[in-house]
């Protein structure tokens, strides 16, 4: 029973402001890699803190590994690993000392669970006597993950582990998560990067404290209600403005090399108005990304 469930969870910090999270319900199955996807301020950290028993919800119920977050908080604390968004290890202890410290806190030893962290720790080993505060960003992140794993948790909470990390290191981090999954650990990970959503088995899209959608990444993109086109021209900012002014176009969003558009009429294609644009364009039909879906849900 390594699952997680939330039922109508709500939390407010300031009565004069909208709640941080409101009516949040979802389930994470045993051994699942579950992603909480949303921008800063969406409520991701609040949910993680409620689930790791660091914060009490105002309303609702939640269970982690079969334990209630209020009644059984002591048990939960033994069974989860938590890597907060902010680096929270002891900066003036060395790599080794941090790891030993956390192992001791949980009544275990580094040796006992070394197999679990081995792949990650070997990269840290050359720096094991270095103070944690002197490590590079990528190395800090790896050490924090090792410390969160050292007591072999049933459920692992990773709050924005890849924020501010470059694309290559982000990819490496997700490779590590995939390996951990094979150990049967349930993993909840939050991220503001929409492109990481497809690496999760199941995702919840969250915005302003509310869950907009929960499903597999494929099911979410499959549910996109319109036909989507990618369109480009020599002058992209001029094209963007022309498309915004075009009454046949329902939505237009810049997506790097292309703009993504949907049309008011679903039977149409961009051919219907190419002659009315002040420039030559290229277009194609495309599959929506999670980011397309997120934007669509935000504006719905």
């Amino acid at each position: 029973m390594n699952n997680v469930s939330l039922e109508s969870i709500a939390k407010s910090f300031d009565a004069s402001k909208p709640p941080a999270v409101k009516d949040v319900s979802f389930e994470v199955s045993d051994g699942e890699l579950f992603g909480l996807i949303g921008p800063d301020g969406a409520g991701k950290t609040t949910l993680f803190r409620i689930l790791t028993t660091l914060l009490l919800a105002d309303e609702g119920k939640a269970k982690v590994a079969g334990c209630d977050v209020v009644k059984d908080y002591k048990q939960i604390r033994k069974e989860v690993g938590y890597m907060p968004g902010k680096f929270s290890l002891y900066q003036d202890l060395s790599v080794e000392e941090n790891l030993n410290f956390f192992a001791t806190l949980f009544g275990t030893t580094v040796m006992e669970n070394y197999d679990l962290i081995k792949d990650i720790y070997v990269q840290l080993e050359p720096f094991k006597t270095r103070r944690a505060g002197k490590l590079s960003g990528g190395m800090k992140q790896k050490l924090a993950l090792c410390c969160a794993l050292i007591h072999r948790p049933k459920v692992l909470f990773l709050d924005e582990p890849t924020t501010g990390v470059d694309a290559v290191s982000r990819w490496e981090f997700w490779e590590m998560l995939k390996r951990l999954k094979t150990e049967g650990i349930t993993i909840l990970v939050s991220t503001p990067y929409m492109d990481e959503a497809s690496l999760c088995e199941k995702i919840a899209l969250i915005q302003e404290g509310r869950i907009m959608s929960i499903d597999t990444p494929m099911a979410i993109t499959a549910a996109f209600p319109k036909e989507l086109f990618a369109i480009k021209a020599e002058n992209m900012s001029q094209l963007l403005n022309s498309l915004r002014d075009n009454e046949l176009v329902q939505s237009v969003n810049a997506f790097g090399e292309y703009h993504h558009i949907t049309l008011v009429k679903d039977s149409g294609t961009p051919d219907a108005f190419t002659d009315r644009l002040p420039m030559a364009i290229e277009w194609k039909t495309i599959e929506p990304t999670i980011e397309d879906c997120f934007i669509h849900m935000m504006s719905a």
């Binding site: 810049a254 980011e291 934007i295």
Partner: peptide
């Protein structure tokens, strides 16, 4: 990194300001 962690709609509005 002006748009780190910003929602996808605001991120695009931000680029409008840059242009």
């Amino acid at each position: 990194e002006p748009t780190g962690g910003v929602d996808p709609v605001t991120r695009r509005q931000f680029w409008d300001l840059i242009y």
